[in-house]
Amino acid sequence: MRPAAIFTGITGMAVVAGLLMASEARLRGGTAGEETAPAGETAAAPDATTEPTEPAATISDERAEMIARSVVPAGSPPPEPPDRAAPKPETITQQAAPVEKKAMELPRPLVENAGSLSFGERRLHLAGIVPTPADRICGPAGRQWPCGMMAKTALRQLLRNRSITCDLDAVEWKGTAIATCRLGTQDLGTWLAENGWAEAEAGSPLAPIAEKTRQAQKGIYGGDPRRK
């Protein structure tokens, strides 16, 4: 046999032996991987196309703020946090000033009772006074007298169709107005309270005057003046 043929045969056998040993090593490595895997799970074969995962790059707060600012268009003001937003302007409610009443002359009032006057379809109550109804009866049984009509007559005799001055918002009004009125310098409400022809409202400045009149038993607090 020729030496070249022998060398070629030996080389081929060496190659075949190397291949067999490599295959056996691979089989042993796969078996070892399967043995180390948890029971019930199959070890995943490595993917040749999968690239090793690189750790996520970290970024500092200063870098993040610079990137955020670069996104805002030039000339736009930076957004303010909610807690620093400008407060809403407070609504200021201004109360209307009270209308100042003026002294106005009213001609020839008609007396309806001791405390109420009329001017055509308009009526006026004297301030601080509880009008005495014209049909009121005063006095004990057997000595009763028409104190309401007497009080109305007394006020009518005082006025005698003369003009009076009243503190009003306007000289024209609708319905019933309440006002302080005077005949010259004489306050009509005070005159009624002093003479006992009308009671004073609770809390009225005329209440102390009416109380003194009641104690003195004048007007509606006393007896029939026609018997005196």
Rank of each mutant, 00 (worst) to 15 (best):
M1H: 11
A17D: 06
M149D: 07
T165E: 11
G12Y: 07
A37Y: 04
T8S: 13
E80S: 09
A5D: 08
A127I: 04
P225N: 10
P78F: 03
E199F: 01
T93C: 06
Q186W: 04
I164F: 02
E201S: 10
G219E: 00
I92C: 04
V99I: 15
G29C: 06
E112W: 03
R162H: 07
E199R: 05
W173E: 05
S70R: 15
T49Q: 13
A210K: 00
R84V: 06
T42S: 11
P98F: 10
A177H: 03
A216V: 07
R28M: 07
G18W: 08
V16M: 13
K88L: 05
G219M: 01
A48S: 12
N161G: 15
D187Q: 12
R84N: 10
T42K: 14
A154G: 03
N195H: 15
G222D: 05
V111P: 02
L155P: 00
L19W: 10
A179Y: 00
I67N: 10
D83N: 09
T213S: 13
E24H: 00
L159R: 05
D61R: 14
S116F: 01
V99K: 14
T50L: 14
H125G: 00
W191A: 14
A177M: 11
G142Q: 09
G40H: 07
T180E: 14
V171F: 09
T58C: 05
A44E: 11
T50F: 05
V71R: 12
G18C: 09
I67E: 12
R26H: 13
A198K: 03
A57N: 07
G75Y: 02
N195F: 04
D47M: 06
D61G: 02
K101T: 15
W197H: 04
G203Q: 05
E51C: 07
R182F: 07
R28L: 10
T176K: 09
D47H: 07
L183Y: 06
V72P: 00
P38Y: 01
T93A: 12
